[in-house]
Structures are given as structure tokens and as C-alpha cells.
Write a protein that binds this DNA or RNA. Structure first.
Lengths: 345, 345
DNA sequence: CACTTTTTGGGTAACGGTACCCACCGTGAT
DNA sequence: ATCACGGTGGGTACCGTTACCCAAAAAGTG
């Protein structure tokens, strides 16, 4: 009645007395545990229905599961993350689990707080997308909760990994640009607060692959890398830096679509036409890349599939699996009109 | 030791025995309740420190608060939502609370599931951004948990509202376009699964204001509205529909930046130059609008401020306030080069 | 100095479920 | 008729924390 005195929730005891059975019986039915007759089952089900009972996850969590999993995203500005989330959500809809999202942010400290917050709230498992933490820290986390790591090329015995084959993807892009006739292909890469092994980070793999492929084509001397961030501002800054060098590149491979958008902006501002003067390619094939006025050549990797896989692997771990599993996605190149042969000059 | 037997967490009892005090004392210290001597306080603090104790939110939730609040976003594809989330997160950092995000999706059914999931997990309060639910349903939710509704112009006695002055914002845009000399100004609006009163929905307000301002300028005959969605595809479709009409508009006011991006794409595809042939304006002033190659005229409303305000109001309610509060943000127009005088033809 | 009041610390019953264990029942085999 | 047994239902301790209550000690009062 009082404003602060919110309506008391229906509990398992209410259901039990309404159905004239024991609390245990109700619990068994909702967990569909062994040892309940069909008659009991339907009697309890009816009572649950009639009272609109929903078990309180928090209370369940004290003894067992909360049916909650935590998704740690660096931020929600990258549409590619939205694809991952959608895939995960779609998968979880077939289960009793719910995913909550929390921002891992741009520093390890914030990321740690986010993970701690999830652990403190007894989630049943955690999915971390492109985490900054060192591998040792991830294994710590995995010791507390089932863990799946997305977008890092690690294989730990203690958690599962889901990632795209960034080496193959980067190779597709760089080869594409070189085949078009470009020699001065530049690259925009990312640097953050991460302390993972460089070889495990997707942006490091993309940039290392860029350098390798350039070298393999005898273009080692043309290697030009701008280090900034995988976001619009980063791409803008990176492109400006590259354009300031002499000679100026005829193609830019941005390690992410978001950065590619920033690069397009910088090129526009510099009065350079795309692709007539400079070609631009990105990575992730976000839906913005498909817009006709952007028409960005990009690497497609199925984010939805990655999210789905992560959810599936995580629940397997929640159910008890302890052997590590790795799930990889093969990328493909989507050529659009932001890339073309270099100016003939 | 066993793989499934994860390390037992440090509990309040461990802290108590380590500090040689009672469980009650520890509880009092972490809640900083009344009745603890400074000596006791420091003794307990040290023990907590030494054991690395963190209270388990789930257990706290059984008696009181979980220190968790739930944020229901329709989706995470709109960068404007990211601004809101950042503002909220920044505010909550000054408190003990943590926000978890969940997708409300595009249908009322999914939204309901999301809210139920939060309630079942005993969050202390809920923030819903642009909810689809009817007002009655929102009041139901508010009966269960403290609630703040963002981006809907409702004033309920049972929850708080935070929104921008969409009437003022829309007026700014339409006036701007008319002052530039446009007469055939068209509008792209949004339609979804919502069953709120039209007058409470921001997109309805924006479109109604568009019609009102047009009429006030004697342009009632020029009113042209395409109904689709506030996203890239919706803007694309809407613009194509508008371009198919005769006479074709010289300016398009898209109700959201995301839709404006789609409109830009459609115009580009149709071979029309912006702003030479057609001017385009959006709403929300997302950071994409600021990119030089997009340079979208848009309405700025401080999403971060809205998120912060929502967090503050919600915690006030959690603390016991029951009188409704309304927080509004005054928008401002940011003119960029996507709008100019109409072709002289 | 006796007596009240305040301060400080602790015991313990909840909170809402789960899961272990036990009792009962009817059946089929001996 | 006795016994063992799978199937079914229920009693209850426990999960980690809070908040109510009480007791003892300390401080203040006449």
C-alpha cells in the first residue's frame, strides 16, 4: 500500500500452498528434475500459471545458477558488436539464459571493474569481446566463472576462444589492393591499453599480415603504418598522418570499418577523390559500409555467427565442459567502389 | 581442486573470523551503518583488504539491494544511445551501483521479456530508453521497481521522465530549412510496435511539429511525409519514396541521424548532390554527423546529460523518493554543409 | 555513587530458492 | 506373506548477507 512497500512477489511457497503440494515439488517442476509424476507436473504448472509466478534468479543463484551471462563489450559504438550481440541474443532465446551487457571501456582498470561487477552478481558465465586484459588475468577470470573470449587469437586451456581468421582477412585486402596495381598501400592500425601478447591481438595480426604480404610482393620499402585507434577519429587522424608523408599512399587499408570512415572523411577534406586518387578498404563489413555513398570495400566476418558460437560454447562450459574449444570464422572480401586501380600518373 | 569446483569465494564470515569480530560487525562496516567504533572500522577494513573480500551482490539482494540497475535500450546500433550509456556510466562511477544493459528489441514482446529478466534478477531500478510499451505497462513496471523513462514525453505520477524538447528541436530544423528558402521540405518519420499515446512519442512529436511549422509558413500543401524507420535502411527507403513523388522535395528532414545517413545514400544513388540539389538534416547530432564528408546539419541534444540525469533520478527513487520528476534537455541546431539554399531553378 | 542514557558489539531469523536425504507407496519376485 | 525396489513426494539445512533485537560497557546526570 505504501509507496515504498511494493507489491510482494509471488514466491515458490505461494505456488506450493496454492497447488497444495510441497515447496520441493514446485522446485522440482520448475527445474524439471527427476521424480515428478505427470499429474504433479500439471498441477504445479497450473498453479504457476494462475499466480503468474516467476522464479527469482537472485535466490536461485545462492544455491545454483542465476541463468544470467555477462557480455563485456569494449563499447557500443561499433556496429560490428551489435551483430555479435544479436547473434548471442538469438541463440540464448532458445535457452533459459539471459545476457546482460556491460562496457569494458578503454582501460584495463575499467574492464576489471566490469568483470568484477559481473562476478559479484553471480553470472553463470562471461563472454569478453576484444578484452584488454593480459592472458594471466583472463585465466584468473576463467577460474571464477566459465569464460569465452571473442576476437583474440589465444588458446588457453581454461577458456574458449572465438575469432575470425584475421590473417586470411588482411591478406585478402592487401592482395586485392596490390592486384589492382597499387604499390604504395598504407595501413591504419590500433593501439590500446591491452597487455596481451601482440600475436594474440587481432589488430596486431592484421598489421603484421599487411607487412608480410607487402614484403612478399617486394613492396617492403613501401610499408607505411599509422598507429591510432579503430574508430572514426582514429581513422581520420591516421589518414591525415599518412597523407602528410611523401610520397603519399594510393591506397589505405584501415584495420576496421570505423577507422575507414574516418579515413574517408580525411580524404574528402584533403580534396582527394575515392577511389580515383586513393583507394580505401576496411574490415568488418559493418552495414554502413554497404551504403551506396560509402560503398566501402571491406572484409566480412559473420559477427552474428561469432556471437551465437560464443553463447553455445559458454553454455557448454556452464554445463560442465572443461576441455577448451576454439571456433574460428573464415572471412571473405566484399569489393565495393571504394577501391580501384591507382591513378595512372 | 576439481575443474568444476571453482575456488570458493571469500565470504563475510571469512572476513569476520580473520578480523576476530562478528559477522554483524563486518556487515555494518561495509554498509557503513551506525554503531561501529573507528577501531572496529579499521580492523575490518584491513581484513577485507587482506582477504580481497567483495560482497556478493546476489546475497545482498536477498535482503536488500543488489546495487545493480538495468538499462533497457532498443538496440545498440544508434550512436546516440552510446552517449546516453556513457553519461549514465560516468554518473554511476561516483556511486556503488553498476548498470547492466539489455536489448529491448523492436517488439513489445521482446521488450517485456527484457524487463522481466531485469526484475527477476532483482535490479534496484530500471531505465528504459524509448520504450514501446503502453503507459499502463510502464506503470506496472514502476510498481515493481523504481523506473525512469527516457525519450518519451510522458508525465506519470509513478516514474520519472527524461527527454529532449523534440518540439523545439524539430522547429529549429524546419525553420532553418524554410529560412534557407526551401518550400518543398519533406520529412522521414518512424513507426514501430509502440502503443504509447502518439503525443508522447518523440517521433510523432517531431513529425507533428514538422507539419505545424510548415502550415504556419503557409506550406501546408507541400507537406510530404515518408513513414519508415529511424535507421539507415529506413532513411534510404524513405528518401527513395520521397524522391519518387512529383514534385520532388528540395530538402529532407530525417527524424534521426541514422535515417539521414540512409537518405544521403539514396540521394547519392539517385545522382543528386547534397546540398546543391537537395538539403538534408538529421536529429541527434551523432558523431558521424560531424565527419567532414558527411557534414550533416543536425539537432544536438546532450545524450550524456540525459544519461547522467536518468541515473541520478533513478538512484533518488531507489533511496525512497516517490514524487515524480521530469528532466528536459533543450536542443540546439548544428548547421553543417548538408543544408543550403535550394537550387535556383 | 546510584541510575539512566548512549554507544558498541554480537546473536540470529529471515530472504527465496535448491538439493540432499529420507519416508512412503504399490508392484513384482521369491 | 515377505522382501527388495524404483518411483514419488516432502522435510530441511544451507547459500551469503542484512536488520532486528538484546546485552554489556561506557558515558552522562542528579
Amino acid at each position: 500500500m505504501v509507496a515504498s512497500g511494493r507489491r510482494r512477489r509471488v514466491t515458490i511457497a505461494d505456488v506450493a500452498s496454492h497447488a497444495q503440494v510441497s515447496v520441493t515439488a514446485v522446485s522440482k517442476v520448475i527445474r524439471n528434475a527427476y521424480g515428478v509424476s505427470p499429474a504433479m507436473k500439471s498441477k504445479v504448472r497450473t498453479a504457476i500459471e494462475e499466480l503468474g509466478y516467476r522464479p527469482q534468479a537472485v535466490a536461485r543463484g545462492m544455491r545454483g545458477r542465476t541463468f544470467t551471462i555477462g557480455l563485456v563489450l569494449p563499447h557500443i559504438r561499433n556496429p560490428f558488436f551489435a551483430d555479435i550481440l544479436d547473434g548471442l541474443t538469438a541463440y540464448l532465446e532458445t535457452t533459459n539464459y539471459q545476457a546482460f551487457m556491460i562496457q569494458g571501456g578503454v582501460t584495463r582498470k575499467v574492464e576489471r571493474r566490469a568483470v568484477d561487477a559481473l562476478v559479484d552478481r553471480q553470472v553463470d558465465g562471461i563472454i569478453m569481446v576484444a578484452p584488454l586484459a593480459a592472458r594471466a588475468r583472463l585465466e584468473e577470470v576463467a577460474k571464477e566463472k566459465p569464460l569465452v573470449v571473442l576476437a583474440r587469437h589465444e588458446r588457453s586451456p581454461h577458456y574458449d576462444s572465438v575469432y575470425g581468421d584475421d590473417e586470411a582477412g588482411a591478406e585478402l585486402v592487401v592482395n586485392h589492393l596490390i592486384e589492382l596495381g597499387h604499390r604504395r598501400v598504407a595501413h591504419i592500425t590500433h593501439q590500446d591499453d591491452s597487455v596481451a601478447r601482440p600475436g594474440d591481438l587481432l589488430h596486431t595480426i592484421r598489421s603484421a599480415t599487411y607487412e608480410r604480404v607487402m614484403t612478399e610482393h617486394g613492396l617492403a620499402a613501401e610499408i607505411a603504418v599509422a598507429t591510432s585507434f579503430y574508430d572514426e577519429q582514429g581513422g581520420y587522424d591516421g589518414a591525415r598522418e599518412l597523407l602528410g608523408r611523401t610520397p603519399c599512399p594510393t591506397a589505405i587499408f584501415a584495420g576496421a570499418d570505423q577507422a575507414a570512415l574516418g579515413a574517408l572523411a580525411a580524404l574528402h577534406e584533403a580534396g582527394l577523390a575515392v577511389p580515383a586518387d586513393v583507394s580505401v578498404a576496411g574490415y568488418d563489413n559493418t552495414h554502413l559500409a554497404a551504403l551506396p555513398n560509402i560503398a566501402l570495400t571491406s572484409v566480412d566476418q559473420d559477427g552474428g555467427e561469432m556471437g551465437r558460437a560464443a553463447g553455445k560454447l559458454l553454455l557448454e562450459r556452464v554445463e560442465g565442459r572443461t576441455t577448451p574449444v576454439r571456433f574460428t570464422v573464415t572471412p571473405s572480401l566484399v569489393v565495393r567502389s571504394s577501391t580501384a586501380a591507382p591513378p595512372s600518373s
